[in-house]
Amino acid sequence: MPRMGLDEEMILSAAAELADRHGLDGVTLAALARQLNVRPPSLYNHIDGLPALRQQLAAYGLEQLHRAMLEASNRHSGKEAVLQAGMAYAAFVRQHPGVYEATLRATGMPAAGQSIVDLAVRLLADFELEERHVIHAVRGLRSLLHGFASLEQGGGFRMEIAPTESLRWILEAYLAGLAKA
């Protein structure tokens, strides 16, 4: 029988907090049970084990990343919409490093990940690229954002200029190249 007040949403939220604090490998059933003040076997009333929990965490992360990018880009169009979505991507990784790590290990998640791809395609539509080139542009954008965020997360940007300033400059250069493509 599930504990009163304990549900999948509460478990997922606690798992996300653990991941962001200790990394994805810090999300164990024992650590999660401690955080929720329950015994580890009690979690099985709500989840199908650690691999399933990590998949749920990955889907949650992709949904949250999509939401952040969508909200940031919603009031803009063209180049500025892409810039805002890109800045939101990097901010999400800064704020949720463990959850983002979960998204990278996700397998078989076409719906959750596809919404981000669809958003990127929509944001890049103003560049009027050939259909084939849209795929290249989306892959390039994702590579740029993931690479930047990963380097920043690993402490790779310790120079005097703020990383957000660099990211904006890099995105603008990328988009200028797309405009010429």
Score class of each variant (00 low, 15 high):
residue 17 E to G: 06
residue 116 I to W: 00
residue 20 D to Y: 14
residue 172 E to I: 09
residue 174 Y to C: 03
residue 61 G to Y: 10
residue 138 V to E: 04
residue 32 L to M: 15
residue 68 A to I: 03
residue 54 R to C: 10
residue 2 P to L: 07
residue 70 L to M: 12
residue 50 L to D: 04
residue 116 I to G: 01
residue 168 R to A: 05
residue 131 E to G: 02
residue 149 A to N: 14
residue 94 R to K: 05
residue 49 G to I: 07
residue 169 W to N: 06
residue 64 Q to Y: 07
residue 122 R to M: 06
residue 121 V to W: 08
residue 66 H to G: 03
residue 145 L to W: 11
residue 157 F to T: 08
residue 178 L to M: 00
residue 173 A to F: 03
residue 58 A to I: 15
residue 41 P to H: 02
residue 83 L to D: 02
residue 148 F to A: 00
residue 23 G to P: 00
residue 133 H to C: 11
residue 35 Q to H: 06
residue 115 S to E: 08
residue 35 Q to A: 08
residue 156 G to T: 10
residue 90 A to P: 07
residue 43 L to H: 15
residue 168 R to W: 11
residue 61 G to A: 05
residue 90 A to H: 09
residue 118 D to Q: 12
residue 168 R to H: 07
residue 59 A to W: 07
residue 21 R to N: 10
residue 91 A to D: 12
residue 116 I to D: 01
residue 18 L to P: 04
residue 50 L to Y: 15
residue 147 G to Q: 02
residue 81 A to Y: 14
residue 120 A to H: 02
residue 11 I to Y: 12
residue 75 R to N: 04
residue 60 Y to S: 12
residue 125 A to N: 01
residue 180 K to H: 11
residue 158 R to M: 08
residue 81 A to T: 15
residue 52 A to C: 15
residue 160 E to N: 06
residue 173 A to T: 09
residue 14 A to T: 02
residue 82 V to Q: 04
residue 3 R to A: 15
residue 1 M to H: 15
residue 99 V to F: 01
residue 2 P to I: 12
residue 159 M to N: 13
residue 156 G to L: 03
residue 132 R to H: 15
residue 107 T to Y: 05
residue 49 G to N: 07
residue 50 L to A: 04
residue 49 G to A: 05
residue 163 P to R: 06
residue 180 K to G: 07
residue 163 P to D: 14
residue 59 A to M: 07
residue 55 Q to R: 11
residue 102 A to H: 00
residue 70 L to N: 14
residue 101 E to Q: 09
residue 90 A to W: 13
residue 37 N to S: 12
residue 43 L to V: 13
residue 178 L to R: 01
residue 107 T to F: 13
residue 143 S to Y: 04
residue 112 A to F: 00
residue 63 E to H: 03
residue 144 L to E: 01
residue 59 A to K: 05
residue 18 L to E: 04
residue 25 D to H: 04
residue 5 G to I: 14
residue 1 M to R: 06
residue 106 A to V: 00
residue 49 G to V: 10
residue 144 L to K: 05
residue 51 P to F: 01
residue 167 L to I: 03
